[in-house]
Design a protein around this nucleic acid. Structure first.
Lengths: 214, 214
DNA sequence: TAGATTGTTAATCGATTAACAATC
DNA sequence: TAGATTGTTAATCGATTAACAATC
């Protein structure tokens, strides 16, 4: 069984393919060639074909790709064909924003709990899920099969909470705290560093400005 | 004047360096070698030196890098040494989360306005900024020097609103809508696709699971 | 069958790492 | 001065693009 190692670059493009294929489905498009898709997505057709062939031959010579089929297959690759129970740690603005994000359910992400340290939030329900206090977290994790935890708490608490989560069997952390988590390598960490993103924007604005002042 | 083209990969690492240097400053560390930093950040020392040398020689042989100086310099490169007026379009959960994100001010990002279509939000103030209705947007942009707009609105409205923003002089868009914006190339777009990020997480969880079942 | 388009190999390009002379 | 560590060139590695034979 050959273990083909898929590069990070390829993986990070998969959700984008999925998104475009979803749009095509909405537009009732039945088939698309790598060439037509490449024009829409502003990437090379060659890259599309290379990327997809990491996972199998989804197309057909002379025809292209069946949109619905490819969409489903990429969904499977991304693990969207099964459900993922998740909790949110930190029921502040960002935590609530994520909790309210209904579309996650389409990808099989089921919100099972919300936790916070703020007693004023205790029992407040978001999409029917009550906010629980942090001291209930450990027991909750032991009684529920939770796969993913979204961490929307301040940097200062992130490490400690992450370790508690890992000790109680969490497999993956969606990290919004402004710090990198150094966890055992069998724990999956996907970080969203909003301030990093804003700085990149700022860098580009500054460069652009300089160019105009020449 | 040689125009050295900085690669996207390098730029996206700058905020991370900035973050680590900030942490070192908090810990009263005065100097650091590329080697020591490389261990902290889990990258190669070579990469650190290469990255920094795109922008100038910030270190000193036999000494390393002065933490405070390097922090300041990277801040300048990222454009954090001047202020950036920004507005948020879409005052839902995510928009409010961003608005409440005080730390942005440290990087010079000044929230000047919040806009939404929901009349129930009209006048509601977040950090002292009242939510305005979308029909006031155009006039607001003409009377205020706004550089950046954060777009936290549904995909279906994103294109239209983005174009309105661009027509009224917005230079950069921080895009949270689940769609790519195809705007004139002098407009800077930085997208945060939360669902893409979650799918990457899901992919890795699924792969990891498969490996365990072997 | 002829035309279209994939899957895949080969060529190119760019980014990362290694090595080391320069120098503090 | 000797030791440390940078800045920078060269070597390696990996990712992207081009090309084309296979095939629907």
């Amino acid at each position: 069984m050959e273990e083909r190692k898929i590069s990070r670059a390829v993986i990070s493009r998969l959700p984008r393919y999925y998104r475009y294929l979803g749009d095509l489905m909405e537009d009732q498009v039945e088939r698309i060639s790598s060439n037509d898709l490449s024009k829409k997505m502003h990437v090379t057709a060659s890259q599309i074909r290379q990327d997809l062939n990491n996972f199998g031959g989804f197309g057909q010579q002379g025809y292209g790709y069946n949109v619905k089929y490819l969409y489903t297959e990429i969904g499977k690759i991304l693990g969207l064909d099964r459900s993922h129970n998740f909790i949110i740690i930190g029921a502040g603005n960002l935590g609530q924003a994520l909790a309210n994000y209904a579309s996650f359910e389409k990808g099989g992400f089921i919100l099972k709990g919300l936790f916070d340290v703020n007693p004023r939030l205790e029992g407040v329900a978001i999409r029917g899920i009550p906010v629980r206090m942090m001291d209930e977290l450990q027991e909750f994790l032991q009684n529920n099969e939770i796969e993913i935890a979204a961490l929307t708490i301040p940097k200062s608490k992130a490490k400690e909470v992450a370790e508690l989560l890992v000790d109680n069997g969490i497999q993956a952390i969606w990290n919004f705290a402004h710090t990198d988590l150094n966890l055992p390598k069998d724990v999956i960490v996907e970080s969203v560093h909003l301030s990093d993103s804003l700085m990149k924007l700022s860098y580009n604005v500054s460069r652009h400005r300089e160019e105009q002042n020449k």
